[in-house]
């Protein structure tokens, strides 16, 4: 399981990378591999406001639909539009090219509630057991 150390994770299998006040958000390697081939992704638009723990979009494989939950609250400032035509990027490169949205974080205190790589890895193992 590929879990970069510089990221924060959620129990809903999203990751979040902070740069200043800006968070880049995607789904984890574990999430993409359990979903299988991703065929469709529905993302918010720039300017939309997302709220921590609430749904901001949907990813679909041929057999499953999964909601995307925001790891942090804030305004969407960038969306990875090319995913619409190439959702397979999420399978191929979940942490870099497969990022989904960038959010201007409204409350940095929320970051404290997120998991680090080690605790997320442990969480996934327990979930599978």
């Amino acid at each position: 399981m590929n879990l970069p150390d510089d990221l924060k994770y959620t129990k809903e299998h999203e990751w979040c990378r902070m740069k200043g006040k800006r968070a880049t958000v995607g789904i984890t390697d574990h999430a993409q591999s359990s979903l299988g081939d991703i065929v469709y992704v529905e993302l918010p638009e720039v300017g939309d406001v997302v709220k921590k723990g609430e749904s901001f979009g949907v990813v679909e494989s041929t057999k499953a639909v999964s909601e995307l939950f925001a790891p942090v609250s804030g305004k969407v400032v960038e969306v990875n539009d090319p995913l619409a035509d190439a959702p397979e990027t999420i399978n191929e490169d979940p942490y870099e090219e497969g990022w989904m949205i960038q959010v201007e974080v409204s409350d940095e205190k929320e970051l404290a509630g997120l998991l680090d790589a080690a605790s997320y890895g442990k969480f996934v193992e327990e979930e599978q057991a």
């Binding site: 065929v39 494989s61 041929t62 397979e88």
Partner: peptide, 8 residues
């Protein structure tokens, strides 16, 4: 059959 291709 390639169902992924059909859906993408």
């Amino acid at each position: 059959l390639d169902e992924t291709r059909a859906a993408r």
